[in-house]
Simulated scan of single mutants.
Amino acid sequence: MTSAESRPHAPLPSGYQLIPEAPGAEEYLRLRRESGLSPRTREQSAGALMASWAWASVRTEDGALAAMGRVLGDGTWYFHLADIATDPAHQRRGLGRVVMEDLIARIDAAAPPHPYITLLADPPGQRLYGSLGFVDSSPSVGMRLPR
């Protein structure tokens, strides 16, 4: 049983709605920028929005994007969580936890036993990720090819 299955999902605060779909391109770019993620271009957003395995978006009562996250993967054993972001005006309300728990539950429901779930943990999210059961991937090290 995974950590996502062993505890109930965090409740969504009143006034918010979890939607299993991608945000619009401008919303995606705005939330990345305002939440402190690296900026991306409209061209880069197109691939992210179309080619992700799953999305979770949290919207306010008036439809504004408050939080988001997505999963990249093959749908069977490899899944990578990315673009986990919460609008600074909506932080400290558990929205990031709701997004993460939703995406993890969807992976657990779709994948055969023992999927490989990864993410890159920037300092602001490390406590949340640890509380959800993520651990350091040592001896493996995350690496990237700069461009």
Rank of each mutant, 00 (worst) to 15 (best):
M1Q: 13
T2M: 08
S3Y: 12
E5T: 09
S6T: 15
R7D: 07
H9R: 13
P11S: 10
P11G: 02
L12W: 02
P13N: 03
P13G: 02
S14T: 11
S14H: 11
Y16L: 02
Y16F: 14
Y16H: 06
E21Q: 13
A25M: 07
A25R: 11
A25I: 04
A25H: 03
L29K: 04
L29R: 14
L31N: 00
L31P: 00
R32N: 11
S35Y: 02
S35I: 01
G36T: 06
S38L: 13
R40L: 06
R42A: 15
R42W: 05
R42M: 08
R42P: 01
E43N: 05
Q44G: 09
Q44A: 06
S45A: 15
A46T: 12
G47H: 08
A48G: 12
L49K: 08
A51L: 14
A51V: 09
S52Q: 06
W53V: 06
W53G: 09
A56C: 07
A56M: 05
S57D: 02
V58E: 00
V58G: 00
R59E: 08
R59Y: 09
R59V: 10
E61K: 09
D62P: 04
D62E: 15
A66D: 08
A67S: 13
A67L: 04
M68F: 08
M68P: 08
V71M: 12
G73C: 13
D74I: 14
G75V: 13
T76L: 14
W77V: 15
Y78R: 15
H80R: 13
L81H: 12
A82D: 11
A82F: 10
I84C: 14
P88L: 05
P88F: 05
A89E: 11
A89F: 00
A89Y: 02
Q91I: 06
G94D: 05
G94W: 04
L95C: 06
G96L: 06
G96I: 03
V98L: 03
V99L: 03
V99K: 02
M100D: 05
E101N: 03
I104C: 11
A105G: 07
R106M: 02
D108C: 03
D108L: 07
A109R: 05
A109C: 00
A111I: 05
H114S: 14
Y116R: 13
Y116E: 09
L119E: 07
A121E: 13
D122M: 12
P123K: 11
Q126P: 08
Q126Y: 10
R127Y: 08
L128E: 06
Y129T: 07
S131A: 15
S131P: 05
L132D: 04
V135K: 14
S140W: 09
V141L: 06
G142V: 04
M143K: 00
R144Q: 05
P146D: 02
P146S: 01
